[in-house]
Computed example of a mutant assay.
Amino acid sequence: MALSCDKNDDADYEFVQVASPQLMSKTAFRSSVEITMPQTIEKAGKIYAYKNYIFVSDVNKGVHIINNTNPESPKAIKYINIPGNEDISVKNDFLYADSATDLVVFDISDINSVALVERLEDVFNVYNHNIPIEADVVDYAKIDYETDIVLGWTLTTERRKKSDERFIDIAINDGANTTAESATGTGGSLARFQIVDNYLYTVGNYEMGIFNIQNLAEPILENTQYAGWNIETMFQAEGYLYLGSTNGMYIFNLVNPALPEYVSEFIHWEGCDPVVVDGNYAYVTIRGGNVCGQLESVLEVIDITDKSTPTLAKRYELDNPYGLGVKDNTLFICDGTSGLKLYNKADPLNLSMTKVFEDIQSKDVIPLENVLLMIGGDTLYQYNYLEDGVELISAFSLK
């Protein structure tokens, strides 16, 4: 028996990371929303605060509701099963959540009797912004867009014939900050949803959705527009939206809230990138290494006094940064495995680290009026504010 040892054959092939879709029929998908008793969290995602409640997402699966009336002893009370969920926002007891391609609305005025009141179908292009960043190739051919919903992606290494088409045609489209005491809740810096007055703004990989929520129970998709490239996060402050992308920060004004207007962009090296704004400065963490881009991880302080010309004012080295937040003269940075770091930002061009909480995993923070929320690993942390820092109130296991 003869074996072929043609080296040219091997030269025609390569190993690539292939993203294959995890599918559910649209019929099953749209009938699977369910409100249940508390469940174990499989993979903790983003956090959101509203009144005395904390909402923790279970990545691509749903939202856990925690009663935080007593921060020393928070209690999980409900779970909303929402397949394909990543973000939420709340206003006046109405909770808005993405569910893959759909926007769903819940009445949470009675937390013991949460009810689904509306579903807008095919308003999000979920197939782009949930693709693993490590993917070289995406198996779109496996998707029947008429009958299927993509809930997530499975990443495998495969030997495939070399092709000039490396990666994705992302043009495929299957369809069209306040405090916790106010009527609108507060998300962390990793959020993709923001509510401003009578509008809910959402961002995907490159597209912004603008929903009129004047009638809270019946939102209307007024517009969709190009938002930038590789958008990951969105922050709102004083009539502007600040979008964090892997390559920079985009600024839009809300003079016409139904159609945000592009103002400018600030370009930085490639990296995973949330942004928060305080006064005349935007604070951007850029996480390098792995799939996020460059090797360096930094905090960039951007002067936005002139919104049309944002300029880099200062750069500080970090280890493994994720989310961040601001309260008064303190900047909180979640530096991943290096813990939670506190900086005095009285002078943004001369930040000084005042405290570091090591030996914890930190991912995102929400600086509320009376308490600091932080999520990291499988734990929800809460801290009291002190004159010179913060002190731990509780560490609530999400498992």
Rank of each mutant, 00 (worst) to 15 (best):
N177M: 12
Y240M: 06
T309R: 08
V390E: 02
N290W: 10
Y127I: 13
I143E: 12
T186R: 08
M24V: 05
T36P: 04
I220P: 10
K162F: 09
N212Q: 05
P71M: 02
F235W: 11
L349F: 13
V90P: 01
F396A: 02
V203D: 07
I108G: 01
I366A: 03
C272Y: 14
T101R: 09
Y242M: 07
L103V: 13
G244Q: 03
I80L: 11
E391H: 04
Q194C: 10
K43Q: 15
M234D: 04
S89Y: 01
I54N: 04
A227D: 00
G187V: 08
F124A: 05
I54W: 00
T36V: 11
E261C: 13
D306N: 14
N81C: 13
R315K: 14
G289C: 10
G289Y: 07
R159I: 11
E222M: 14
D378T: 07
Y226I: 12
E238R: 14
Q382E: 12
I304T: 03
L216Q: 02
R160V: 06
E134A: 14
Y140P: 07
F29T: 01
V123K: 10
V390W: 01
V390M: 01
G323S: 08
T69F: 11
L398R: 09
Q214W: 06
L373G: 01
A237D: 15
L398V: 13
N125I: 14
V104G: 01
A237M: 12
P310M: 11
N60C: 07
K314F: 15
I267W: 08
N370L: 05
N128F: 10
T69R: 10
N81M: 10
E391D: 13
K142P: 07
S99G: 07
K345E: 13
E72L: 05
E14F: 06
C5A: 14
T40R: 14
T233H: 08
N128T: 15
D364K: 07
F193R: 06
V275N: 04
I393Q: 02
Y283H: 07
F55G: 00
V275M: 02
R119G: 09
A313K: 09
K345H: 09
I231S: 03
R315P: 12
I66H: 06
S338R: 11
W229R: 14
V365S: 01
V255H: 05
D144F: 03
P132V: 02
I393H: 03
D10S: 12
M234F: 04
T379F: 04
N205T: 15
Q214D: 12
E121L: 13
T179C: 06
K345R: 15
L386Q: 09
K363W: 11
Y140W: 15
D335S: 08
T179Y: 10
N198C: 03
L299I: 07
I195Y: 00
D335H: 05
T379N: 07
N67W: 09
G209D: 15
D136W: 00
N85H: 05
V114G: 01
T178K: 12
P219N: 13
V117F: 03
I251C: 05
L254N: 03
V104H: 00
N256A: 07
M353S: 11
R160H: 11
I375P: 01
D169T: 08
T179L: 04
D122Q: 11
D364R: 08
S31Y: 04
Y199N: 12
F55K: 06
N370M: 07
S397K: 14
